[in-house]
Amino acid sequence: MNKMKIIVPAFIIMVLLQWYFPLKAVWQSEHILATGNEYKFRTMPVDPKDPFRGKYVTLNYEATTVPIDEADAWQTISEAYGIIQLDTEGYARFVALQKTQPASSIDYMKVKIDNIKAGEDPKAIVALPFKRFYVEESKAKAVEDLYRKHQRDPNSVTYALVAVKGGEGQLKDLQVNGTSILEHVQVE
């Protein structure tokens, strides 16, 4: 009888914890998407298929090179905070890296440092945390073809629409000339 008094509450706690952590992660992602500041990151073409995760478009970004002060000071750093600003065309760029979390009054995103280029103008090559745009299986081929077509067209602009809040970024949409690529697929 005493064992049941311990087992039942322990079981209930275990079940609640199993639901708590996934729901917390979903809530955080949705909160960033709903309340984060939106930025447009220009993309570059690449598109593999992953049979274990479904169809997606892999995204490469133009804004991955960030100026740094001294290359030697960054050689052992693997993660940093990229300070985001808009360029003259309204696209997001990282203008600086910081080793510590910046003040909350500016927009920044936690990024991984892929490479450090030393020289006269030292630079860090960073990787953004959102590299894949997942697509419903039935639309995957059409999205893939349309994305490639617009990447080759010099008159088209493709970019990822990203919500940023508190150093975290969530991919909202893949846009072609200011419209969701999913809307383009339905039209064409």
Rank of each mutant, 00 (worst) to 15 (best):
I32Q: 07
V8L: 13
Y159M: 05
K123M: 12
V135F: 06
D173Y: 08
A71R: 06
E137F: 11
F21N: 03
A34C: 08
A142C: 04
K49M: 14
V26Y: 01
K112T: 14
E89L: 11
L97N: 01
Q151Y: 07
D114K: 10
F133Y: 11
Y108Q: 03
E168P: 02
Y108G: 01
T179F: 07
M109T: 11
A71P: 01
I68D: 07
T100G: 06
T58H: 10
S29L: 09
L97P: 03
A142H: 05
A80P: 10
I7P: 02
A73C: 02
Q175N: 08
P129G: 10
L16I: 13
I125S: 06
K24I: 08
R152T: 14
I113Q: 00
R148W: 13
T58E: 15
T88S: 11
F21T: 11
K117S: 13
K141F: 08
V15N: 03
L182Y: 03
D72R: 09
I6N: 03
Q151L: 12
A73P: 03
V135D: 04
L182A: 00
V164G: 02
Q85A: 15
F133L: 09
E79H: 13
V57Y: 00
Q151I: 11
I84S: 04
A92C: 04
A71Q: 03
G178Y: 05
Q28S: 11
G167N: 00
D107Y: 03
E120H: 00
F94Y: 11
A163C: 05
E137P: 00
A127W: 00
V111F: 03
V46C: 01
V57Q: 09
W74P: 03
H150I: 08
F21S: 05
T88D: 14
G54P: 09
S138W: 11
K141D: 15
Y147A: 12
V66Y: 07
K5N: 09
G166N: 10
I6K: 07
Y56C: 05
P102Q: 08
Q18V: 14
A142M: 05
M1W: 14
A140C: 04
L174H: 01
A103E: 15
F11C: 12
F41I: 09
H150A: 08
P22L: 10
Q28V: 15
V95P: 04
V162L: 04
L33Q: 13
T100N: 10
P51D: 08
V126W: 05
G119D: 06
P9Q: 01
R53S: 10
N155K: 14
K165M: 13
A142K: 05
V162S: 06
L33S: 15
N155F: 11
M1P: 07
A80N: 07
Q75I: 11
Q85T: 12
Y147D: 09
L174N: 02
E38I: 11
H184Y: 12
I116G: 02
R42I: 15
A25D: 13
A163W: 07
L146T: 10
T88G: 02
I32E: 06
T43F: 01
Y91V: 05
A127Q: 11
Q186V: 03
A163G: 03
F130I: 08
E137Y: 12
K141M: 15
G169F: 02
K5H: 08
K49W: 02
R148Q: 14
L182K: 01
D87S: 04
K131G: 06
R93L: 12
V8M: 07
E70F: 15
P67Y: 15
P154F: 09
Y159R: 00
T43Y: 06
F130K: 12
E188Q: 07
S180C: 07
K55N: 14
P48S: 15
F130P: 03
N2H: 12
